[in-house]
């Protein structure tokens, strides 16, 4: 347990705050990579997923994509893109990798949310004269939000973990401390950085857990809690 004390000491030491990579900067970069990548992925995947869920077209592709994506090793993808883009474009290459990894879970959340809306509800909406886009906008999207947020949640966790691995290609983010710590055999630094990463990941996850609850429409929640 001594190591934990040393790790905590590392987190709060002045060296860590003001070294070549200050801790606050590492956290900020880590978060910035995560937020930007997930946002870009969402802009692409959310509308696409809604359309797939609404029309049923391209469903096979979307399902196959989100299944196969799990098999792609994220660390390998980052290194591959950095080499392909060239080492002078590490930020762009890494971000591209993060976006690619974030798209499948968001896509899955968007289309499965729309698909999970009961057929009879959609049928009722059409029967009273909603246009196709009104059905999507007024019924399928609001009722599918919890699953969409679930998809964003998985994507965010995936990206947080991958940004950590990207510490191997650049002196940025919290992963760099671990990669550097391994080289210089500084286990306090490794554990300290790991603890910060865990706290960051858990906080983000908690945020999404709360959001997931908040977007359950009130009428649906009322039914779930019983009368």
């Amino acid at each position: 347990m001594d190591l934990f004390a040393e790790a905590i000491a590392w987190i709060f030491s002045t060296d860590t705050q003001s070294g070549s990579l200050p801790l606050s900067e590492a956290i900020a970069t880590h978060l910035a990579f995560t937020v930007v990548s997930v946002l870009i992925a969402a802009v692409i995947a959310v509308p696409a997923g809604w359309l797939v869920g609404h029309t049923g077209r391209g469903r096979e592709i979307a399902v196959g994509l989100s299944g196969a994506a799990r098999a792609v090793p994220s660390f390998g993808l980052v290194l591959l893109l950095v080499l392909v883009f060239g080492v002078t474009h590490k930020v762009g290459a890494s971000t591209t990798a993060f976006v690619l990894l974030a798209i499948p879970p968001i896509l899955a959340g968007a289309y499965s949310g729309v698909e999970a809306v009961e057929r009879r509800i959609v049928d009722g909406a059409r029967a009273v004269g909603m246009t196709s886009s009104q059905v999507l906008g007024k019924v399928e999207i609001p009722l599918g939000l919890p699953l969409l947020i679930g998809g964003l949640r998985s994507a965010t966790l995936q990206v947080v973990a991958t940004v950590t691995l990207a510490g191997y290609v650049g002196s940025w983010g919290l992963g760099f401390y671990i990669v550097q710590g391994i080289q210089i055999r500084d286990f306090a630094q490794i554990l300290g950085a790991a603890l910060v990463i865990v706290v960051l990941a858990v906080l983000l996850d908690l945020l999404f857990a709360l959001a997931e609850r908040a977007v359950v429409p009130r009428g649906v929640r009322a039914g779930r809690d019983g009368r």
Binding site: R120, I121, G129, P142, L143
Partner: peptide
């Protein structure tokens, strides 16, 4: 459809 009333089995109401 808007000019015709339609009652579905199970209501088909919007839960939200």
């Amino acid at each position: 459809r808007r000019s015709i009333g339609y009652v579905l089995q199970n209501g088909g109401l919007l839960p939200h």
